[in-house]
Design a protein around this nucleic acid. Structure first.
Lengths: 356, 356
DNA sequence: ATGAAAGCGCTAACAG
DNA sequence: CTGTTAGCGCTTTCAT
């Protein structure tokens, strides 16, 4: 039964019933008697306004979207949960979508959400800034906000980590603990996030006069498989690194797998700093020193900013860059300082022997 | 711009444009000339039928829902991804929702989806079978299918693991490897899933004449925190078990944490079989022997069955119970058989000394 | 091969 | 305080 039918049964006009049921009884000064009569009947027959009709009429859906690149990644599922919580508290339902790290899917989904006239969208892009995507975003015509992986050159409010600083943080820690042969397992090179993190690492090593050999830069992609493949290559490097920074959470899983395959012990053979704290970070062997993002704070800011945007207000600028923290555990083993300025190799593994 | 405006510009009626754009040009024998003219203009102006209007008119949304109890749990996020993939291939968008293991939220979300007139719903319930939930499901009035956690006494198509058999599988393995003091870290006792798994374990131990002390049954809830708390109690047991079966994936994380706290070594001090293969199962210390569910097959069947249901056809009965497999890794350490039938305690830990 | 018209269920402007 | 009316954007008879 719908509002009109109920109205008929009550000998009232649909308007009146609508007003009561959509909570504007007071505003229209519906008599308490009528209001109660309506509410009672609505309850009894299980009548509620059909959101479809209401949305069509109002031009509002009461629904925002969150499009994540990988719902399987704890970072994004945590983000999703927090965003949903925050938005729901403000009466906004969220439609959660997963592009599975696939730019095509992402584009389709984006188009879908646009055409469904969502009231707003939080987008954590796959990270590949294609013209099509840029275009789709710019012409989306709905309040939109980017989170985590940034698309540069796009004038859209944004919530993200200070990725360059995070890269520096990881590298500095490794340097401070005596590592001198620091490798990097990257994510998707085309993503701004990865580039910034890498840039931070690179810069820090450079400033410390430490080499960053080409064979120490591996990995291309955010998947576990990409991490596995990259790490395998890394472990085949003729000159073995004494530490590695893994720039992606899923990639770290691949690294762990490769290390297992190769019989490489962490941190004895190789120290590891891994991006993204994960539920299991403390329990793998060894417990991982991680770069942790303030997921909750980021989600909350994103949600609130979107709410603002949806009200037509402008987002406050520059609130959206968060600092990373290091969570120290045992995947980093301090290395003794080299005897002197010479090329002495304490670990005897710079002789070109392939790693394990 | 919408269909009518486009029609006006083309000097056509909205009907014609609608017919072309919704793919029924052939059916109505629209002349190819007109059809192409429409398509070209639609492309140029970026016009597509507004799903809202279409849905209202058709009474169909082209959208199904998946309501998961914990999107943060890899099992459910994997499920979500597979379901979405399958459904999207059939032109159905899926709205993914997360009830965060909260029955209230679940109820609200369910009500929402009902009122939004989704075309179908796959529900992985939190697992607590309240009358309100049962009622909501029965009166949902949309094609609905339960997955993973079953609500008994509800005549609804269902896809699930053979949980009792899975429990038996885990217990038998432990018995076969010489364990005689087998504990169980449960999930939410009110969920059918947990009960069945536990029942399988209990029954197997009983049949093998093995004791199952009350203090060896701990844990109540699917969260990691619940697992932590339960495991702590377990490790305080006056009589220490030589193995534990963890009935929930998130709970296992808590167990691992508690073991770490207590300085308990797995599998030396305690063997572990954990439910739900997780991305990290192979990398924790030690790599975990897990009970694995055929997630993909389950998701596919669920999606296909829902599709059937949405076409008004009945689901085939009894296709929906899947067997579990054991993935052998190193968290189970074979125990030597006791010398004889006596009470000899090889590990010297039945003397009532607290765990640790 | 196309158009006119009705109506999906709702709400908001306007009228009383 | 309540009703009337119009129309959100679309699809689908029914007509031609």
């Amino acid at each position: 039964m719908n509002i009109s039918e109920l109205a008929a049964r009550l000998q009232l006009s649909p308007s009146t019933v609508s007003r009561v049921l959509s909570g504007s009884a007071a505003k229209y000064r519906i008599s308490p008697t009528t209001a109660n009569r309506v509410r009672e009947a609505a309850g009894r027959y299980g009548v509620a306004p059909d959101p479809l009709g209401a949305s069509l009429r109002r031009g509002k859906l009461g629904m925002a979207g969150f499009l994540a690149p990988d719902i399987t990644n704890p970072f994004f599922s945590a983000l999703a949960r927090s965003i949903e919580l925050e938005l729901r508290q403000h009466g906004i339902t969220v439609q959660l979508c997963d592009s599975a790290e696939n730019p095509m899917t992402e584009l389709e989904l984006l188009e879908q959400m646009r055409s469904r006239r969502l009231d707003g969208l939080i987008l954590a892009p796959v990270g590949r800034a294609s013209p099509a995507l840029t275009q789709a975003i710019q012409s989306a015509g709905l309040p939109l906000l980017l989170i985590d992986r940034i698309l540069p050159g796009l004038d859209v409010p944004t919530v993200s980590l200070d990725n360059a600083a995070a890269g520096r943080l990881a590298a500095s820690h490794l340097i401070a603990t005596g590592h001198r042969r620091i490798a990097c397992l990257r994510g998707d090179h085309e993503s701004h996030t990865d580039r910034e993190r890498f840039h931070g690492v690179e810069r820090t090593l450079f400033d410390a006069d430490l080499p960053l050999r080409a064979e120490w830069i591996q990995g291309s992609g955010y998947s576990r498989e990409a991490g596995l493949e990259g790490a395998r290559k890394l472990f085949l490097a003729r000159s073995r690194p004494d530490a590695v920074i893994a720039l992606s959470g899923q990639g770290t899983l691949g690294l762990l797998e490769a290390a297992q395959e190769a019989g490489l012990r962490i941190p004895d053979d190789l120290s590891l700093v891994a991006f993204d704290e994960q539920p299991w970070s403390a329990f793998v062997a060894p417990p991982l020193t991680t770069v942790v993002q303030p997921v909750d704070a980021m989600a909350k800011l994103a949600a609130r900013t979107l709410l603002l945007l949806m009200e037509g207000r402008a987002a406050e600028p520059d609130q959206g860059v968060f600092p990373a923290r290091l969570h120290h555990r045992s995947s980093v083993m301090p290395r003794p300082a080299p005897a002197s300025c010479g090329t002495t190799d304490v670990y005897g593994n710079s002789d070109g022997a392939p790693g394990i």
